[in-house]
C-alpha cells in the first residue's frame, strides 16, 4: 500500500482551483488564437481579440478570467493500492476547494439548498466522482464549471433506431438552442451510452479532455470533427453575435448501453472551459 496524506490532497486541490481560474488552459488559448484567424465576422474578430486580451490581463493580475469561477467538479481516479491517511478523502477535497476559493479571491457561487438559496460562503461542496482503478496511483482532475453554459446542457433518451444521425441532430440542436447564453465559442462535452446518469457523467468527463486531443476510437474522432464543422456553420459565432466560431471543440465519450436505449447527454461549456489534472 502507498500512503497519501490528506494535507497533500487539500494543497493540490486548492492550487488547481486557483490555477484553472486565473490561467487559461493552453488548448483553449490555442483554440481561440486559431479561430481568430478563421473568423470573418468583424464583431466576432473583435470579441475574440477581447477574450485573448482578457486572458492576458487575468494571468498578469492573477485574477479570475471570468467572475463565475464555477462549481468545483472533481474526478478522482484512485488505485486500489493507495491508502489515505490523516482523514477522509472527500473532506480533504472539499477543504482544498474552501482554501483555494478563499485564498484565490474566487467567487463563492454555491447555495446550500436548491430552493432555500443561502450561500455556503466557501464554494463547497464540490461535486466529486470517484473511480477505483488498479495500482497505487492517485489522479485528481478538477473542472470548475460555470453555470451560464451548464444551464444550456441537455440529455436525450433516444431510441436505438435514431442511431448516429439522431445523435448528431440533438447535439447540433442543443448547441443552436444554447446560442449566446452559453458564452460561445463553446466547448461541448458529449456522453453517449450507459444509463441516464452515466451519459451525463461521461459528458462532463469529455470536457476535461483537452480539445486538441481527439477520441481514440476512429468513428468517434470522425464524429467529433464532423460535428465541430457543422456547429461552426450554425452562424452563432463569438458571444452569439454572428460568425464562424461557435465551438472550439466537441469531445465525445461513449460507453456500452442497454438493448432498448441510446442516451445522449450534451454538456455545454464556455470559452473559458477550465480543466487540470494532478497525480499524487
Amino acid at each position: 500500500m502507498r500512503e497519501v496524506h490528506v494535507n497533500d490532497i487539500t494543497q493540490a486541490v486548492a492550487k488547481m482551483c486557483i490555477a484553472t481560474n486565473v490561467k487559461i488552459s493552453p488548448d483553449i488559448l490555442e483554440g481561440l488564437k486559431k479561430s481568430q484567424k478563421l473568423e470573418s465576422s468583424p464583431i466576432g474578430i473583435d470579441i475574440l481579440d477581447q477574450l485573448l486580451q482578457n486572458a492576458e490581463i487575468a494571468e498578469r493580475k492573477n485574477m479570475p478570467i471570468c467572475q463565475d469561477t464555477g462549481m468545483a467538479v472533481v474526478f478522482v481516479e484512485i488505485g486500489q493500492e493507495v491508502s489515505i491517511s490523516g482523514g477522509l478523502l472527500t473532506d480533504a477535497i472539499n477543504e482544498g476547494v474552501r482554501k483555494g476559493y478563499e485564498e484565490g479571491y474566487l467567487r463563492k457561487s454555491i447555495v446550500e439548498d436548491p430552493f432555500f438559496r443561502v450561500n455556503t460562503n466557501d464554494n463547497t461542496p464540490a461535486v466529486i466522482h470517484y473511480d477505483i482503478v488498479g495500482g497505487d496511483s492517485l489522479k485528481i482532475s478538477l473542472s470548475p464549471k460555470g453555470f451560464g453554459s451548464e444551464n444550456m446542457s441537455r440529455i436525450y433518451m433516444l431510441k436505438p433506431s435514431d442511431g448516429i444521425e439522431g445523435a448528431k441532430r440533438v447535439i447540433l440542436e442543443t448547441i443552436d438552442m444554447a446560442g449566446p447564453n452559453a458564452c460561445p465559442p463553446m466547448v461541448v462535452g458529449v456522453g453517449i451510452g450507459g444509463t441516464f446518469e452515466k451519459a451525463a457523467i461521461l459528458a462532463k468527463k469529455a470536457l476535461i479532455r483537452p480539445i486538441d486531443q481527439s477520441s481514440d476510437i476512429t468513428y468517434v474522432s470522425n464524429l467529433e470533427k464532423e460535428l465541430t464543422k457543422k456547429a461552426n456553420q450554425l452562424g452563432i459565432g463569438p458571444q452569439g453575435m454572428g460568425g464562424r466560431t461557435t465551438v472550439l471543440g466537441i469531445n465525445i465519450e461513449t460507453f456500452p448501453t442497454h438493448i432498448a436505449g441510446l442516451p445522449v447527454a450534451i454538456n455545454i461549456s464556455c470559452h473559458v472551459t477550465r480543466h487540470m489534472s494532478v497525480s499524487l
Binding site: L172, K230, L234, G235, I236, G237, M241, G242
Partner: peptide
C-alpha cells in the same frame, strides 16, 4: 435584435 440579424449572415448549415 443584433443576435438575430448577425446569425443569419453566417449561417450556412443545412440539416442532412
Amino acid at each position: 435584435n443584433l443576435y438575430e440579424e448577425e446569425k443569419v449572415k453566417y449561417r450556412t448549415y443545412q440539416a442532412d
